[in-house]
Write a protein that binds this DNA or RNA. Sequence first.
DNA 1: GTGAAAGCGCTAACAT
DNA 2: ATGTTAGCGCTTTCAC
Lengths: 356, 356
Amino acid sequence: MIPTIKDVAAHAGFSIATVSRAINAPHTVNPVTLDTVRQSIDALNFRPSQLGRQLRGERTRLIGVILPTLANPVFAECLQGIDELAAAQGYRLMLMTTQYDADRERHAIETLREHRVEGLILTVADADTHPLLDELDRAGLLYVLMHNDTVRRPSVSVDNRLAAFDGVRMLIAHGHRRILMLAGTLAASDRARQRHLGYAQAMQQAGLTPAPPLEVDFNADELSPSVLAHLTSGPNRPTALFCSNDLLAMVVMRGLRRARLQIPHDMSILGFDGLAMGELLSPPLASICAPNREIGCAAWQRLLARVTGTYDTSGETSLTLTLPHSLREGATIAAISNSNEKPPAHASVSVERPFV
Amino acid sequence: MIPTIKDVAAHAGFSIATVSRAINAPHTVNPVTLDTVRQSIDALNFRPSQLGRQLRGERTRLIGVILPTLANPVFAECLQGIDELAAAQGYRLMLMTTQYDADRERHAIETLREHRVEGLILTVADADTHPLLDELDRAGLLYVLMHNDTVRRPSVSVDNRLAAFDGVRMLIAHGHRRILMLAGTLAASDRARQRHLGYAQAMQQAGLTPAPPLEVDFNADELSPSVLAHLTSGPNRPTALFCSNDLLAMVVMRGLRRARLQIPHDMSILGFDGLAMGELLSPPLASICAPNREIGCAAWQRLLARVTGTYDTSGETSLTLTLPHSLREGATIAAISNSNEKPPAHASVSVERPFV
DNA sequence: GTGAAAGCGCTAACAT
DNA sequence: ATGTTAGCGCTTTCAC
């Protein structure tokens, strides 16, 4: 059915070796021969099989990409960066998504290993404690993590703690005192932890009391009554919400609007991710921006440096690469006039009794 | 470096055939032998090479996916549908994006052919006139188009003309008379044409004059002065905009807001795609919804039916599959009281002189 | 400049 | 139940 190099050789009246050379090293074959071979290739519509090629040579020029989901544009943006460089450098991408499921993560890694990918770019829930990554090390399969906040493994990310710290400080600078952090129900990720840490540090530095993250069901149409109660009732209701990612921020904003709250008048919102789409919202979403596309590009470059052996192992190049974050001060944040605020009588009391 | 079946055989003290059987048909080998082999596999951390397997057998269980971009969530949503089924059915996906570039489309197809993908799922700009698709037919490579509006080739899509027709009729039902269609600068796609056709038909049916699509630069931060002039100046300015996709609608909405227009009070907006994200906007974006995820799933199923030969060639199953669209009546559409409108003195005049 | 032949990792007859 | 062997499509010595 599909023509092979043999068919071309027969058609052209040369050996398969000559055909192979005509394809891979045209200058080493007689121009006349070359022409004949090329005509046969065209006539048969022949394309050399990468399978044969890969089996023979040691390189597959295949890179595996494992992402939690594409429903969150964060990962689509990263993938764009990867894809751009991969295409330019003649590599192919094999994509698998996991939906944050450990079984699927394991399966994806197995599958990609079987395809002899030369390396892996991936995002997992928790990099430090992930047994599969140890196995990768053991199997000698090179990988680079994206967005995972760890110093123990090769990774490209922003400093999630510092980024959250900066973002929450900005909220505080706008006069907010009662700031709550919201997280998705799948909050057990390393980056979510780091973001909460940054939040807590910013709060404490300002003499405020951090609260544990409030979990919000991402997929529900409305905010749950208990969450709404947290956000809206009582004199100690928060005036600002730090959402652990932009998609969550958008869901929360919709929930608040449906509960007849005005943004930012009744509640300020700060997201995390810096999705391009956030700027198109009304009001434009304030966010702590990660350079997602660049993270993808950097992960690619790091991986390829290691794959091709260009990697500088002198120790000067560290395992992790931290890209700079930035703050997008969107209109979802309002300033609070401090006169409206009644600070707790004693800071110590406030520390012992979080406002939530 | 990477262990092969030979290494396992040597380690276990059996032949490679036995190892192969232990992997692919465990029940045909002695339980004790099986156990020994499995221990060796674990000890060596062996994974069978798909390259060897694929080369031997005729099936690669590889499907190629070619998409214009992942920056538009439409395609990410489709890909999600595909990925879900592919993973469940043990197929692997090779992804390439083209940025609507013909060279990259050609290159992607070549590359995927070389990898002996069993089929292709793709979205191109214009399916009817696409020479590469003829070449696929010629090469005997199975494919299914997504979102391409053609009856000549295997495809899964909504009825873009009818969908646009329904959407614009809804605008008209809300009292709008001067409705403009906006399209991205890369408007030369089959679906964009069909959508404009539906727009034009709805207008004409209502005795209104359709205008040619107004091109908007997708990537610019602001709407161009000339576009803004079209949209805002004069007594004959449009009261509603039909945007050829949701992303464009969002860009346009931002541009209008920056020009101090209120949505929907000063301008109604209708998008096309039904992006999940649109519902999170404020006001929620009215849109003509395509079931993107389902389109991906259906394309997968069609392709696999053909790949595995399950495809019903009795003629009852048509080349194209049209999935139902739906209207999302978001808050970006306001009703116009007809009394505010001054219809053109003579319909015939109006036909000869479009309002733009 | 070209050809013959080995071998990449694996599966599937066929043989024992 | 297990081993031997041919061969999938290709690249690459090594001859000529």
